[in-house]
Simulated assay, not measured.
Amino acid sequence: MARRHLSPDEAALWTALTRSVRPIRPHGRVMPALPTQPVAVTPKTGLTPPLRQTPTPAPVAVRTPAAVLDTGWEKRIRGGTISPDMSIDLHGHSLSAAHVRLNQAIASALARDARVLLVVTGKPPKNAADGASRRGAIRGEIGHWIETSPYADRIASVRVAHPRHGGDGALYLVLRRKK
């Protein structure tokens, strides 16, 4: 199928539309700002020039948890020799209560200069009704909670815990040091 080029009217409409779109997650990919150009008013379409918007400052780069830490941390996590400074048990709580408790625990760990927070979410059910393994409700939401937490930039890594600390039913939150 051959590509059709936009008419000047369609291009003006498209430009006006793209300027009005705001990202759901502002810390995601950053698109360069488009230069603002007035849209021509034509009797045919009745378009009016869009209001000029003041340029928004470039978003600050948000640090995200790393998939892999340095060799020392990796050996300690795999070998189970890591010792959590604090722990919190979320299973058995409602989703809203677990979310609040998680944020409180992260704030408390940061206030105490803890490096590793053990978060017990509970293991996924072994016998799912549909035959497939399903994640528990808290385990299914915890990634989103951590990502949108006010402390997200203070979390260096999120890892599945060693079996001695709960295995699939728990996570290590490795916290960044204070600056």
Rank of each mutant, 00 (worst) to 15 (best):
L90N: 10
G167M: 03
E147Y: 08
A98Q: 13
I24S: 08
A98E: 14
R4N: 10
G167E: 02
S96L: 15
P8W: 02
I82N: 03
L118W: 08
P84K: 05
G92L: 09
G28V: 03
A107P: 02
T71Y: 04
T54S: 06
M31A: 06
H93T: 13
V39P: 01
A152E: 12
G143K: 05
A40S: 10
K179Y: 06
A33C: 00
Q53N: 03
E141N: 11
L69S: 03
P57R: 09
A11R: 09
P43F: 03
D9I: 13
P50V: 04
V62W: 00
L13R: 05
G28Y: 06
P23Y: 11
A128Q: 06
L51T: 07
D89V: 10
W73C: 06
I142D: 12
R139G: 15
T36Y: 15
A152I: 03
T64N: 01
T42V: 07
T81N: 02
A11C: 12
L51D: 05
K178L: 15
V30W: 00
R177M: 14
V60I: 12
S157F: 01
K123H: 11
V68W: 03
L34R: 00
D9H: 04
M86I: 00
V39S: 09
T36R: 02
N127R: 15
Q53A: 07
I106T: 06
L69V: 11
S87V: 01
T54P: 02
G140Y: 08
G143N: 08
G122P: 08
S108V: 04
H165P: 01
V174Y: 05
E147R: 14
K123G: 13
S20V: 01
H144W: 13
L13G: 02
Y151C: 11
G169K: 05
P23G: 04
I77H: 03
R76V: 01
R135I: 10
V62T: 04
A128T: 09
P125E: 13
P49I: 07
L171Q: 12
G140K: 11
A152N: 05
L171P: 01
D113G: 12
M31E: 13
G79T: 02
R177S: 15
A40P: 05
L13W: 06
I146A: 09
T42S: 05
V116E: 10
A2S: 14
T15F: 04
L34C: 00
S87D: 15
A111T: 04
D168S: 09
V60D: 01
H91P: 07
A105E: 09
D168H: 06
R29A: 10
A12G: 07
P23M: 04
A66R: 05
R29L: 10
G46F: 04
R101Y: 11
P8E: 02
A98G: 14
Y172E: 09
Q104E: 15
V119F: 14
L173A: 09
P163Q: 02
L171D: 02
R4Y: 11
I138L: 12
T71H: 14
L110E: 10
R52A: 14
P124A: 15
V60L: 08
